[in-house]
Amino acid sequence: MIATDGSAMTEANGKPRILIIDSDEDFREMIRLYLALEGYSPSAVDAVDAVVRVRSDPPELIVAEWTSPLLDGPRFLKWLREEAGYDRPVLVLTALKRADIESRAIAAGADAVLFKPAGPAAIAARISELIQ
């Protein structure tokens, strides 16, 4: 349920809603299962559905891939912040290990960056930090 005052978007049962945007279906499924067991309400989409989902059902936190086929991370973040008006935390999770990725992601609007293959516990812990 979406609160009208813009406060934290949670399900009615109090679990924060997390949107996972990743092109890897297996990863989406696994991390969703894990985060669900951790008490979150995760949903996972690929790049094609990401824009629609964010507009229609903005989550409390977005875990987004930096770059993948059909998803240009910098452009997506820019759209997210400037056009979609999304002001919640965004965690970038990427397999592209380069020295400039973190700074570019932060500059583009991300709140944190983790590099794959970060363990699900670490991802959950980071999500918890960002939500709090």
Binding site: D26, M30, I31, A95, P117, A118, A121
Partner: peptide, 29 residues
């Protein structure tokens, strides 16, 4: 990049399998 990308779901799957509260269908998946 490919290693990192492929290891991510593997690691998640391993972490899930180590949990006792994982339902059986999810375990199989």
């Amino acid at each position: 990049h490919r290693l990192r990308r492929d290891l991510a779901p593997i690691r998640c799957a391993a972490a899930l399998l180590s949990r006792r509260d994982l339902p059986e269908p999810d375990r199989k998946r």
